[in-house]
Design a protein around this nucleic acid. Structure first.
Lengths: 159, 159
DNA sequence: CCCAACTGTCTATTTTATTGAACAGCGGAT
DNA sequence: ATCCGCTGTTCAATAAAATAGACAGTTGGG
């Protein structure tokens, strides 16, 4: 178990806020296969893994280098937030590269007249937010960042 | 053919100066499998690919990020040259990260009394060499490097 | 020349991944 | 309570990957 593809795939999938079935449908594979891979009961072919990753989208290189570069990041820049939305609504997922997130935060931009249905932000021991305008000085665990429009933060509330 | 694993594997294998059988033996797989993978006739499982790459040795992340970072490098530092030798003889392969090399260059260090059999350097339109002692100023295609002991160079002779 | 040792490719068989459709569990709505 | 829609898991059948071994071509030596 030198490199556990299953755990990494599960962490990536949950980070993007997708279910096994939703990921499978986008990738063109079956949900059972995603389940078996995540449990480590099969070793997928690189072709299958590539199809699955294309649903994020993510390349093989990005997938395998993922946690080495962004294990415990706190600040995520605007360009690093993938757009999950459709049509006139823009959803940008915060901390998408972070593994095993316990919650999801969305940066939402609505066209004039667009409608929001439910409250998507639920609290569960971790905190996150987005700077809509102006600048913010953020201090977490002794470190300080200056965030401007579009930047965001994410950290364990115990810090 | 988004990411051709076969071509990449073949380029990597030849860059390390290994035959299909030699690679297969080190990796604990069959030579036929290496052949089929390199021809693109099968898509190996990540487990199998991982076993194969461990013979170089190379991680999955390093394998997939390989050509993005070192596509057309000219200078290769001493630390980047893998040791291909055994026993008292030290063989360090130059430009191992470069894809589809048409030749091989070896930096050879022999213990006192060791014996050399055949001439390993054959010319075929490309040039390479190693700095054994002192310093050298190298200019290729308008760029200049200063090489010291252990450093090496590799470039297309048309430049 | 012939032999030996190597190169990579190909075929039949075994092993494994992948599919498609079932299953049980959970939360919300009626 | 049931029903709906979702979550992830598991099973038998199918498709594909991996194996063991044979094959042809090449290089160097006796």
């Amino acid at each position: 178990m030198a490199e556990d593809v299953g755990k990494k795939l599960k962490a990536t999938r949950t980070a993007f806020g997708l279910s096994q079935r939703e990921l499978a449908k986008r990738a063109g594979v079956t949900n059972g296969m995603v389940s078996l891979i995540e449990q480590g009961r099969v070793s997928p072919s690189v072709g299958s893994l590539q199809k699955i990753l294309s649903a994020f989208p993510l390349t093989l290189a990005e997938f395998f280098t993922r946690d080495l570069s962004s294990q415990e990041e706190v600040v995520f820049r605007a360009a690093d937030q993938p757009d999950m939305g459709t049509g006139g609504i823009e959803f940008r997922l915060v901390a998408a590269t972070r593994r095993d997130r316990a919650m999801s935060i969305l940066n939402e931009v609505y066209e004039p007249g667009a409608d929001t249905g439910s409250d998507l932000l639920t609290h569960s021991g971790e905190e996150g937010g987005v700077i809509v305008a102006g600048e913010l000085e953020l201090t977490v665990a002794g470190k300080t960042w200056t965030l401007s429009k579009g930047d965001s933060y994410y950290f364990d509330s115990r810090l």
